[in-house]
Amino acid sequence: MQKVYIYKGFERLWHWSQASLIIFLALTGFEVHGAYTIFGFEKAAEFHRTASWLLIGLIILAIFWHITTGEWRQYIPTTRKLKEQVIYYMSGIFKGEHHPTEKSELSKLNPLQRIVYLSFKLLLVPMTIISGILYLLYKTFDQNNLIVIEDYPLASIAFWHTMGAILLIIFLIVHVYMTTTGKTPTSNIKAMITGYEEFDEEDEVKPEQNELNNKIQ
């Protein structure tokens, strides 16, 4: 057995706060949407607004972190082994085959994850947040005050925001399920909690890579 440090402190903090904020935002957001009643509309809207500021703050930190640490490179999309990865999830996984790509500190995302997470970060989250901010500041013409967003139909703002919310939930479900496809069903989740992932000796972790990992630790 060999422990490899995969997820850094900030990354884990960011991941779990973002996860809980999104879940909380979904919970309160769909209450605002009228899907059910938990907190009551007033509280739901208030909580949603507060949580949304926290999420915005967190994401600004995360962007900063990605840029300064160079971690953004993890998300550069690649088509190398993309097909193999897809085929693996569709059939190989049932046959007990090995993952077609190896996880390491330097390359922790497989090609499929790269594409999905990148679109999550560049499309889905911005769509939800930008429409959310428009929603947050929405107001029509007022004789006494400034016009913040003038008569852009709220229905379309709400449409894009709800679309983002729906896709985020779908993402969440699939994402959570996919974490169980690691070495053991919980190994990926454990890694995101402790930062370390265990690799069997027989896993062909390239010696240079291990050295690198150890150095960084």
Binding site: V32, H33, G34, F41, A45, P153, L154, A155, A158, F159, T162, M163, I166, I169, I170, I173, V174, Y177
Partner: peptide, 28 residues
Amino acid sequence: GFYLPGRDSNKTQDSFGYWMLILTLLAV
């Protein structure tokens, strides 16, 4: 004639969301 949050929603989108959820859960 206007969108009132909590009262109004896009019905097509709602059923899209509903079916997406069901299909995703089924797939998973």
